[in-house]
């Protein structure tokens, strides 16, 4: 069975070595963030988020009543959202296989005072340079973030440069919203992704 896998013996990181917030129990859900996952991400967030509204936002253009306070979202929170996604062929999380790494997650703020769009970039490190499941893993990460983050985030998921033989082709697919949308109407693929994400909820 293992012989069929692209990488039968992946390196597995000890769970206690994975990045987490020191002040919180890594297994505890962060209530503020997950509230926004359960409720429709838009147009309004739960009221208790008020105290988290960031100063960066309050002086930005908010001429619109629907403008609700933005919670701060940092790389650690993005990491927490995707680290527990299960690898499609190993009984391990993407974090423990070091496919997802905290330093490879970045968030770009809106490019101008008028813009309200932030960009999350996640660079993935496949376990082997020819892993045929790179696209599926990337898709799972993108779908997870699309479902979990408010729509003001644009999500760029890519394979880290030099980590994969067909990185450019995989990256182009992951960046194509039409292909991603069509893939999510493919029952087989949706089943695989749902399975990978089952460890997230």
């Amino acid at each position: 069975m293992d012989a069929d896998k692209d990488n039968p013996n992946p390196t597995i990181v000890n769970a206690s070595d994975l990045p987490s917030r020191r002040r919180s129990n890594p297994t505890a859900k962060r209530p503020t963030l997950f509230d926004s996952l359960i409720a429709p991400a838009y147009p309004s967030y739960a009221v208790p988020l008020d105290d988290l509204s960031s100063p960066e936002v309050s002086d930005a253009a908010s001429d619109d009543e629907e403008d609700t306070p933005r919670e701060e979202i940092d790389a650690q929170e993005i990491y927490d959202l995707i680290s527990s996604i299960q690898d499609p062929e190993h009984p391990n999380s993407l974090a423990s296989l070091a496919v997802v790494n905290l330093p490879d997650i970045s968030i770009s703020p809106p490019s101008s005072p008028n813009s309200r769009i932030s960009t999350v970039t996640v660079l993935l490190t496949p376990t082997t340079a020819h892993c045929s499941l790179g696209t599926v893993i990337g898709l799972a990460v993108r779908v997870r973030l699309e479902n979990a983050l408010p729509p003001r985030f644009r999500i760029d998921v890519r394979l880290k440069e030099g980590t994969h033989t067909t990185a450019d082709a995989v990256n182009k697919q992951l960046g194509d919203k039409e292909r991603v949308a069509a893939a999510m109407e493919n029952g087989t693929l949706v089943g695989v992704i749902r399975n990978m994400l089952s460890t997230c909820e």
Binding site: N114, I117, P151
Partner: peptide, 9 residues
């Protein structure tokens, strides 16, 4: 014009 469909694409 920016944010034509709110924050959506």
């Amino acid at each position: 014009t920016e944010n034509a469909h709110d924050v959506f694409e």
